[in-house]
Amino acid sequence: MRHLIPSFIRVPVVFFIIVGLVEYFVDSGDQPAFMEQPIIMLFLLLVLLILLAIEGIVGSMDNILYQSLDEEAKARYDSKRAEPSKLTVWVKDTYQKLLGSKPIEQEGEIILDHNYDGIKELDNNLPPWWLYGFYATIIFGVIYMVRYHVLNADDQFAEYEIEYAEAQRAIEEYKKTAKNLVDINTVEILTETADLNAGQKVFEANCVVCHMADGGGGIGPNLTDEYWILGGGIKNVFKTVSEGGRDGKGMVAWKASLKPLEIAQVSSYLLQFQGTTPANPKDPEGDIWVDESAESTDSATDEASESEAESTEEVAEATTVASNN
Rank of each mutant, 00 (worst) to 15 (best):
D287E: 15
D155T: 12
I64V: 06
E23C: 02
Y164G: 08
D298Q: 03
G215W: 00
E161D: 15
I110W: 02
S85W: 03
E173K: 14
A170Q: 13
E159R: 04
D291S: 00
D78M: 10
P103K: 06
D183W: 00
E295N: 14
Q37V: 09
K102R: 12
D195V: 02
E295Q: 06
I288K: 08
P38D: 12
F16D: 12
A316E: 15
S60F: 15
R246Q: 02
A136D: 14
W254E: 05
G216L: 02
G286F: 05
N63G: 11
I57A: 15
M61A: 15
M1F: 10
F16N: 14
Q156D: 14
D302T: 00
A53G: 13
K176E: 14
E204Q: 15
W228R: 10
D298W: 02
A158T: 06
T297Q: 07
N236I: 02
D155E: 07
M145N: 13
P103L: 11
S68M: 15
G59S: 12
G133W: 03
A253Q: 04
W130G: 02
P32V: 04
S305T: 03
V13N: 08
G215P: 00
Y66V: 08
G199H: 13
G245K: 09
S101K: 03
G216F: 07
D123R: 02
L131E: 13
A33N: 06
E204L: 05
E107S: 06
S323D: 15
A170Y: 12
W289C: 14
A300Y: 00
F15Q: 06
E192F: 10
G217C: 01
Y227C: 03
D78H: 12
H3T: 11
D123A: 10
D113M: 04
V202S: 09
M41N: 09
G199K: 01
D302F: 03
L196F: 05
E303W: 03
V208I: 01
G245V: 00
T240D: 04
L151G: 01
N197R: 11
V252T: 10
E71K: 11
A53I: 06
M61G: 11
Y116C: 05
I54Q: 13
D247H: 00
R10A: 13
E317F: 10
S305Q: 01
Q31Y: 01
Q156E: 10
K92T: 15
D154V: 10
G245E: 00
D30G: 13
I50N: 15
G231Y: 00
T177W: 07
A75P: 04
G118C: 05
D183I: 00
Y148L: 01
E107G: 09
K201A: 11
V266Q: 04
A294F: 14
I219P: 01
L258R: 01
A253D: 08
A153I: 05
Y116W: 06
G199Q: 06
N180H: 07
G108S: 07
L223P: 03
D291W: 00
E121N: 05
S101D: 07
R2Y: 12
Y116H: 09
G248Q: 03
